[in-house]
């Protein structure tokens, strides 16, 4: 694993800049017809958003991806808790990251603080992921 697991270690971050196509495909996969995700006049003129709103659970998935890519075949995610704190939009560049906060070498149990930040550095989706390394 790179980096090796230890408390305080941060995993490689990943940037996401989802466009209309990715947002459309994500909501199509969900079967989510909520207009704020694809109807720009509705999102801006009726709901007053500055743009098309990114779907909250897509950010939740990105929290998992940071940890999952690092784990590879050496472990699995066992639990997550997270919340969506603020709206994000098509055109935003978001950064997903994680830091190990607990590691039990014996059992292979890990806890990580995970986050999605916007360009201003605000955490728009904080969370905690639990994982277990193969033993």
């Amino acid at each position: 694993m790179n980096p090796e697991p230890a408390v305080g270690v941060s995993l490689p971050e990943r940037q996401h800049s989802p466009d209309n196509v990715q947002l459309m495909l994500y909501n199509a996969v969900l079967w989510n017809g909520h207009r704020i995700h694809f109807d720009l006049p509705y999102a801006t003129e009726v709901e007053g958003y500055p743009g098309l709103v990114l779907a909250g659970p897509m950010l939740g998935d990105w929290l998992h991806q940071v940890v999952d890519e690092w784990l590879g075949d050496d472990g699995v995610i066992t639990r997550v808790e997270y919340s969506n704190r603020g709206a994000t939009y098509v055109g935003d560049t978001l950064t997903a990251g994680a830091t190990i906060t607990n590691y039990d070498e014996q059992s292979g149990e890990l806890t990580l603080d995970v986050f999605i930040k916007n360009e201003a550095g605000d955490v728009v989706a904080p969370g905690v992921i639990g994982a277990r390394l193969n033993r």
């Binding site: 699995v76 066992t78 639990r79 997550v80 919340s83 969506n84 603020g86």
Partner: peptide, 12 residues
């Protein structure tokens, strides 16, 4: 308002 989610993954 924004809510939260907690998920346990028990089996693949």
């Amino acid at each position: 308002m924004a809510g939260g989610l907690e998920i346990e993954y028990l089996r693949p």
